[in-house]
Write a protein that binds this DNA or RNA. Structure first.
Lengths: 227, 227
DNA sequence: CGTAGATTTGACAAGGCTCAACCTCCGTGG
DNA sequence: CCACGGAGGTTGAGCCTTGTCAAATCTACG
């Protein structure tokens, strides 16, 4: 990890808007700020590995962090992709616990780190933090349930269509936007091989979806929804 | 729901050993006991449906509760299977939240219900409850991560082998045991069609696994692990 | 302008779902 | 006591989807 530091004005600002801190009272925010350490991760840097004793909680400030599990044979399966504001490693607020998966910076990223022991100390004193943590983890759980069901119920083109719809305004108008990360990352997030994602995109061409690089244009959101 | 009642001696005993209550101090246990309502569910009874406003937290005392999500077309995908001691619906300790999936008794079951508002009240006063909730939800999150990765990395026979190994003593000796529930439930839990589970079992016959009804015999756990 | 990395495409094979038939317990009622 | 019927489970056939490997392109950025 490069350049450890105390949060400066920029970082405090971002942290205040993060999923966790934004739910806290001023005193808990202050306590968390007190123990926050900002770190700058180069792309591909590992934050922690599956099975290691968990000693840190992380919050993404910018960039993306990929959470994945390894096969005995070395194959990887992504289980989550965290972006700005997300809590990483919340699956082990358990003390004495171990990380359930490996976390890696998918691109250069800025994160805040909190010593897990100290977080628990604060949580034991300040219920608002404990409750906010529960809420954060609950939300992640709900999201993963959705992902699991999505995997089991829908084909690749359907999953991609859903993903795209999730990034559209809900009115039925045509839209364009930029994918927030590489396609290979998106493929992993959706549980697909990159080739399958590519093929899914080309099938969606027949349904009004145009992709050039990271730029996506959706001609008819309603048509996508009908897939 | 049939026969609502205050917990009797039997139920208090079981509750005390549940994942959540066993981590609490005596006063929090008392507070939770105070608001617990015991309910008796016939098989197939729905506890709550996906999308409904969440107002209750549940804890399984006996039997199994299946958590699943529905497709627009009516197909179901199981996302979790809760047994005795497990917390159901923890994915929404969020206030104002909605249930993320539908919960149904897979067989006649006994459960404890807690009013979610009151649980939050207690959690706001007693950090040990808030922290215990976080731990419970974290553990579920870690489990689902495992499930998702398992789905994406392993074939049907491999998933079944892993499941069986998870129910063996870890020494390498041969063992027999009873499946805790029907095969169709197990299939859902593993993300398989019942036919696929059946075929997986028959492939595992070549690796020392014998299945008759719910009785499973594993001749050589080590061989299974090597799959 | 070149190179490393990212993406696409094609050919294949394997894996798992669906449908449909059959089988095996078991409990019920004649 | 036996036939019947239903639920759960197994088996077979065919098809669709997706992972894998290899090669061709493409793209970003130094």
């Amino acid at each position: 990890m490069n350049r450890l530091m105390k949060p400066g004005a920029r970082e405090r600002e971002t942290l205040l808007n993060s999923g966790l801190l934004s739910m806290l009272g001023v005193e808990s925010v202050a306590a968390m700020m007190e123990i926050a350490i900002i770190g700058n991760l180069p792309a591909r840097q590992i934050l922690f590995r599956e099975g290691e004793p968990a000693d840190m909680l992380h919050c993404v400030l910018s960039g993306y962090i990929r959470l994945y599990k390894l096969d005995p044979d070395g194959r990887e399966a992504d289980v989550e992709l965290y972006g700005p504001g997300d809590l990483v490693g919340a699956s082990v607020v358990l003390d004495g616990g171990r990380y359930a998966a490996t976390a890696q910076a998918a691109e250069p990223a800025l994160i805040a780190r909190f010593d897990l022991k100290r977080v628990r100390d604060i949580a034991n004193r300040r219920p608002d933090l404990a409750v906010a943590l529960t809420d954060a983890v609950s939300a992640q759980l709900a999201k993963v349930f959705g992902c699991l069901a999505n995997d089991r119920l829908h084909t690749a083109p359907q999953r991609v269509a859903r993903y795209l719809l999730g990034h559209c305004p809900q009115d039925g108008k045509a839209v364009s936007f930029r994918l927030p990360y590489q396609k290979s990352l998106l493929a992993g997030k959706l549980g697909l091989a990159p080739e399958a994602l590519s093929r899914a995109f080309s099938m969606l061409r027949d349904h009004g979806v145009t992709v050039r690089g990271r730029l996506v244009h959706i001609g008819d959101p309603e048509a996508l929804r009908r897939l």
